[in-house]
Amino acid sequence: MEQKTRVLRDSFDRSYEAGAVACHRGDPADHWLAVIEGIVKVDTASKEGRVITFAGVPAGSWFGEGVVLKDEPRPYSVVAIRDSRLAFVPKSTFLWLLEQSHSFSRYVIDQLNARCGYYVGLVHNLRLHEASARVAFCLAELFNQQLYPATDKTLGFSQEEIGRLCGLSRQNTNRAIRELEDAGLVVAEYGSIQILDLAALRRFAHSGD
């Protein structure tokens, strides 16, 4: 009860319109974050302006534990893909919970392990340079139960939002989704995309391995 009381007392939430930056690259990592509503992407940009999307984070998911633990500037930006609301837990409260709660420490360890596996897969996927495989990977990884426990098989994303999530142009995203539809993996509807075969979608994401 003491732990819950402190988290509720110390934490706060903020709302962001689609396209707004919630956290800038280089900012102090002073908070552990959660998406209450909407979806955000974690990305960075090269000096030449090329944007690389590391992850999409849907509602019901926590993120940013690694950079809080490392005590260094945030190496990525957090951008709202659609209108979103985020929760902010102060770093001091996060670290206090780690010391006070064995179950919370176990949860954070599992988060870090799942995050590491995700980024290994992401780096490999980016090297495939196939838009359809990249879209398949981004969609399939939204169903990682450790990282994103609340994802539904019907994703309320427009194709434009999927493109932002994957770091692809709208044209390449549309072409990739048509390929996934032709393979019987998804069905795209207005403002949403339904996953028909998650296991096959994951295999397709790694088809160039």
Rank of each mutant, 00 (worst) to 15 (best):
A200Q: 11
V51P: 01
G64F: 04
E99T: 06
P28T: 10
E99M: 09
V135S: 14
R115S: 10
I52P: 01
S15K: 09
R203C: 02
W32G: 02
G191Y: 15
Y118W: 07
G117Y: 00
L147M: 14
E17M: 07
I162M: 13
A55Q: 14
N172R: 11
V68N: 06
L122W: 11
R134F: 00
S15V: 12
E161P: 14
I109R: 12
H129Q: 13
R85H: 02
R82V: 06
A22K: 08
D27L: 09
L97W: 03
L69S: 03
S158Y: 11
R175D: 04
V7S: 03
A18S: 15
T5W: 02
M1P: 05
R25L: 04
V42Y: 06
L155C: 05
P28G: 11
S11G: 08
G64M: 06
R178M: 10
S15D: 09
L69E: 07
G191F: 15
E181D: 11
N174T: 04
G163T: 02
D197T: 05
R202I: 01
E37P: 04
G184K: 12
D43M: 00
C138W: 13
G64E: 06
Q146V: 15
F104V: 09
K153Y: 15
L142E: 12
G56D: 00
V79Q: 00
Q100P: 00
F137T: 11
E130I: 02
S132I: 02
H124S: 02
R25Y: 06
G19P: 01
R115C: 06
Q159H: 13
L168V: 05
S169H: 11
E130V: 05
R175G: 01
E160N: 12
L122F: 08
T44M: 05
C138Y: 14
C116I: 09
P90C: 06
G19V: 01
K91G: 10
E72W: 07
F12T: 00
R9N: 06
S84T: 07
Q145V: 13
S15M: 04
T154L: 12
H124G: 05
V42M: 09
V78D: 01
G156I: 15
N125R: 06
A55L: 11
